[in-house]
């Protein structure tokens, strides 16, 4: 195997991480499904019935892409950051560091598993939502593309967070103080065109706006920003994360003294 690609190591990490999710099935699958269902009952059925349709789409249906984004995004970060932070915390990271495995392979294993888990969750939420509201997907391929790009990008971001954090508090604080506000203000629950012009302009600095907008376009062909720009911004953020990860492993930041 020397010199080549250690696919067995990638597979070992991937399986290990997936097994962890299925072991804690209540926490990793049932709870997001439950909370999403609650969103649909409260905002979709109860309050949503009093809100006007947005560009011809009922509010309940309008919510679906935003809610899927909200969940997959936060789950990607949580899965990936915990996946790499926990071995650092317990010390089992020694085995990863001493294995004949490259940076790329480590990232593929952890990020691949985290992205897969949130992708599965996104699909489960999509299916769940169909029980509550009328969902239609205009561009299934683009829908999947945006979903995969989002899960991969935010799993990369979560992976970085898990490397940077030196305590459970830091692991929680970024999702809580940065990611949650960005997702709530990123148009998950509204179209940014509903905002006053000043806040519309501010919103364009929020990367989540582009994700939600592009993703919603793949459902209903309505978008706050041009789809090509959405796609470009998502790819840009992904490349930025990859760049930082490459630097982390090159310098051994927080991993090797």
């Amino acid at each position: 195997m020397s010199g080549g690609f250690n696919h067995r190591a990638v597979w070992a990490i991937y399986r290990f991480e997936m097994a962890r999710a299925f072991r804690t099935v209540g926490q990793s699958i049932i709870s997001p499904v439950l909370s999403t269902s609650l969103y649909f009952i409260v905002f979709g059925a109860a309050i949503g019935s009093r809100i006007d349709a947005i560009e011809g789409v009922s509010y309940g249906a309008f919510l679906v892409p935003g809610l899927i984004m909200l969940t997959t995004l936060s789950q990607s970060i949580a899965n990936a950051s915990f996946g790499i932070y926990f071995p650092r915390f317990t010390g089992t990271i020694y085995e990863i560091l001493s294995a004949p495995i490259s940076t790329l392979e480590i990232v593929l294993g952890y990020v691949g598993a985290a992205a897969s888990k949130s992708l599965i969750m996104g699909i489960i939420i999509l299916v769940t939502s169909a029980f509550f509201v009328d969902v239609s997907v205009a561009h299934p391929i683009w829908m999947l593309t945006f979903l995969v790009l989002t899960t991969v990008t935010f799993s990369l971001f979560g992976f970085l967070l898990g490397i940077w954090a030196d305590g459970f508090e830091k692991l929680q604080i970024i999702p809580l103080l940065v990611v949650t506000p960005l997702t709530f203000l990123g148009g998950s629950f509204y179209s940014i065109t509903m905002l006053p012009p000043f806040w519309q302009a501010v919103s364009l600095f929020n990367p989540v706006v582009y994700l939600v907008s592009g993703f919603r376009w793949s459902f209903y062909e309505i978008a706050d920003v041009n789809v090509a720009i959405s796609l470009g911004m998502t790819l840009f953020f992904m490349i930025a994360c990859l760049g930082v990860i490459w630097w982390v492993f090159k310098t051994g930041y927080r991993l090797k003294s």
Binding site: R8, I13, R15, A19
Partner: peptide
């Protein structure tokens, strides 16, 4: 069983 099998995979062995 799982952890020993994991280690083996990590080191690239079938």
């Amino acid at each position: 069983w799982a952890t020993v099998s994991f280690s083996r995979g990590l080191f690239g062995k079938p």
